[in-house]
Design a protein around this nucleic acid. Sequence first.
DNA 1: TGTTGTGAAAGTGTTCACAGCC
DNA 2: GGCTGTGAACACTTTCACAACA
Lengths: 241, 241
Amino acid sequence: MTDQPHPEAERRSPAEVNAGPPRTAAVPSERGAVPPATVSRLWLYLRQLRQLRREGGASINSQQLAASLGISGAQVRRDLALFGHFGKRGVGYPLESLERSIKAILGMDQRWPVMLIGVGNLGTALAGYSGLAEQGFHLVAALDSDPRRVGQPLGQLIVEPVELLEQIVPERHVQLAMLAVPAPAAEALGRRLLGAGVRGILNFAPISLRGLTPQAPVVEVDLAMEIQRLAFAVANRPPSH
Amino acid sequence: MTDQPHPEAERRSPAEVNAGPPRTAAVPSERGAVPPATVSRLWLYLRQLRQLRREGGASINSQQLAASLGISGAQVRRDLALFGHFGKRGVGYPLESLERSIKAILGMDQRWPVMLIGVGNLGTALAGYSGLAEQGFHLVAALDSDPRRVGQPLGQLIVEPVELLEQIVPERHVQLAMLAVPAPAAEALGRRLLGAGVRGILNFAPISLRGLTPQAPVVEVDLAMEIQRLAFAVANRPPSH
DNA sequence: TGTTGTGAAAGTGTTCACAGCC
DNA sequence: GGCTGTGAACACTTTCACAACA
């Protein structure tokens, strides 16, 4: 055996990093797999399209859409062409139908019941994030282990004790969980969530859950990593002034 | 001219964060660009090394380190080999010296004065994130436009009015800014920050600042995008059970 | 022996440039 | 004329597999 004795742990991110879904497998679209990078960009396109529509536009071309996001027009066209022919040559892409199409591709035409674990500052920020409900992500439970927080109102919800996790997940058909707890608690809670039937975890704790859970996708968000990336980019910049 | 009339907006992904002046201390690699993907992973290695050292270990091999993060051993070795020969054949990597080396590579051997703009739930969460100060990211100012928040304590700081931005940035040598404000306010503030001399922005508002600011690096964090990526991964999963 | 470090190969993602259509 | 959609070229990233070596 040369390197990896077990081929098991090696089925991982082909080109993604901190959060690449373990595998982006088959797609709603007919052909092949969707590049994870494309999924992220589709979301950005959608965000931009909404904005444009609010401003009263009717269509946009790839170059303009790209410029507003700091990428190339070819990239936009390539991404969209993966899923069909949405544009009109000589004109561009109609805002409304493109928006609908992207929503369908991303699975945003369905309702996603979401559970929040950990109602600290970050958890509260997540719960209050209006973007979520608008996009079909409905918070159906907020749990915490701190008795002082249990019983407090949080938006439309009341914070409930974390002991009820196993009961609430099936009862409310929770599909996704946002884990906003301190690192030491994250691993055990991750296991409990998966055991209870949650299908994906958004982990904000600075500890990797991916090595432990090949069963379901985990997306990791490490806020310290993001500022670290920024600092690195700044430090390694061509001397501008 | 076929596609991009202006080659300007296209200065992006080909190793966005790359070749720079030979950093401060012991960056063994003087050569070429660092793959952005590697930067993110180095941070994860560091996180893991700290954890292992707390548990009393002295060294680790690439396979174990990789498994804990759900990636391959070859990946770890390749990443580290970019910067020098840190390992011992037949043994692995010594925790302590590797930790020091990675810190130097990432520029974490210096102090980064950071400004926070927007002291809502998310801003408060960021300010309270203990990981930051530990890694050299020191919050030196917290600004808000809401008079009810100005004057309130926030950790060691007092929230100050956003009008003082242009004054505080040079005074306190602010290098990085965390922008945690609503989308409509983000663009103007981004411009003001760059105008005032900030060298990089961590943007949490769901609007892209990259199309507008080629001058300084901007790292975008869109929390809704992250849960969207998770949902996509779940929806497009091979039917496991 | 066990594990690193690394050429070579494979795999993924992005850009170029232009034919085809509106 | 303008813009999409796309083959081909290019660039980047990961994996393989093994020689080197503590």
